[in-house]
């Protein structure tokens, strides 16, 4: 059975204290803006980044890798769920869209 080829990903989580959605950038910093996240192109790198995030349990919670694609300003969501996480709910101007 053929294995599904690796697709580009971003490492995301929520801040432990505040709950805010954050992304891991290439310098090991947790950033609020999806466009500043590291777009992970290789499977081995993805495993390393996930291990790094899981070791950061005093800063973040619920870390996971999620599919993203390259866009003109940085990573962009492939799935609508991550689109909502990156912006905010559609019924109020809350979440990340509030500061945009």
């Amino acid at each position: 059975m053929s294995r599904r080829p690796f697709t580009p990903k971003v490492l995301t989580a929520n801040l432990l204290r505040e709950g805010d959605v954050v992304y891991l950038d290439a310098t090991d910093a947790w950033v609020a803006d999806l466009h500043r996240a590291e777009l992970i192109e290789h499977e081995a790198r993805a495993a390393d980044r996930l291990a790094f995030a899981e070791a950061q349990s005093s800063r973040v919670v619920g870390a996971y890798l999620t599919d993203m694609k390259a866009g003109p300003n940085g990573p962009e969501p492939v799935h609508f769920r991550e689109g909502f996480r990156a912006t905010g709910p559609s019924n109020y101007p809350h979440g990340k869209q509030a500061g945009a």
């Binding site: 929520n14 432990l16 204290r17 505040e18 709950g19 805010d20 959605v21 349990s57 005093s58 919670v61 619920g62 769920r81 909502f84 996480r85 905010g88 709910p89 809350h94 979440g95």
Partner: peptide
């Protein structure tokens, strides 16, 4: 204890859920 690292998230999660605290899409 969760914030100072004494409790892992795996240990803390059932405790917070027993007190009505979920982690949702954007926030707690």
């Amino acid at each position: 204890r969760r914030l100072d690292g004494s409790l892992t998230e795996e240990e803390f999660k059932p405790l917070r859920l027993m007190n009505g605290v979920y982690l949702q899409l954007h926030a707690y």
